[in-house]
Design a protein around this nucleic acid. Sequence first.
DNA 1: AAATAATAGTTGGTTTTGTAACTAACAAGG
DNA 2: CCTTGTTAGTTACAAAACCAACTATTATTT
Lengths: 157, 157
Amino acid sequence: MTEKDDFSLQDFLPFLLNRAAEDSSLAFQAHYKNRYGMLRNEWRVLFHLGIFGQMTAKEIGERAKIHKTKISRAVAKLAARRFVSRSRDEKDRRSEHLRLTPAGEAAYRDLRSQAQSYDAQLAQRFTPQEVALLRDMLRQLAGIEAPDSQEGEQGGD
Amino acid sequence: MTEKDDFSLQDFLPFLLNRAAEDSSLAFQAHYKNRYGMLRNEWRVLFHLGIFGQMTAKEIGERAKIHKTKISRAVAKLAARRFVSRSRDEKDRRSEHLRLTPAGEAAYRDLRSQAQSYDAQLAQRFTPQEVALLRDMLRQLAGIEAPDSQEGEQGGD
DNA sequence: AAATAATAGTTGGTTTTGTAACTAACAAGG
DNA sequence: CCTTGTTAGTTACAAAACCAACTATTATTT
């Protein structure tokens, strides 16, 4: 099984990114899956609501670049488990405002601390400068604006 | 929609990695999907065979960390489309050796060149040093040994 | 204001993945 | 050998993702 070709898959950025993403997701998945029976899109929604307090499904979808059907189903599950509450916007009755219930807040705080320590654990392998650069580059690749310049200017789907 | 919490999802490595991976995969996906009707695991298998010439399903799975059922299905599709040929190992009739047919080789060469130019396009956003560091860090996070030190010592699943 | 278009979110049917159980072939121990 | 255990790969069933069509509501056009 020796290489007959100079191309290296293990240098190809999309491959590397996917592998790193899968690997790093796996360990964190255990927390939200085992402890709260959540799926990936569910913790993402939970985190958005935990961070921003109140959002509509559309706003979450735009910020996280998650398709609306995934949001819809994630919200439905979170609402069924009483982690989020929904309230119609009376100005525009098509949309509804989502926020965490106390139980949702508790789950969020718990998972946030798991996330923080897991992130630290990953970051630990590198110097602080390296990690900062890594995050910058990943944001670049993901089309996310830098954390300080808070402008929403996306290519859209 | 202003933050009420200091935790930033856009700094959380698993989130960033996933978003960057999804985004970077999207453009490359168009090539193998539209032109060859392939799925992600199929081009991965194709590339492994293109690079290494001949492998068993197990070897591909180990190297790419893809589960054997995904390999099995990917190989089945590639074989049905006459991109790979299978031949039983006569010493151990459980396993079979896979290799690309001429059509598979052609598809591989085409996609490889797409991959190379797409990778260059991604890398272009950064300095060569930054890209080199990025690849190193991603390999670290993905549990892939450096490209020169060719040892297979994985945590296993 | 009636008709048309656009938007927020949901639902249904198909494809893909995930997981476990399965078959076939080999390996080891009694 | 003949049971028991392992390994390579496949298959089956359930869960999840994908994509398109749908409902309800608001905005725009004539």
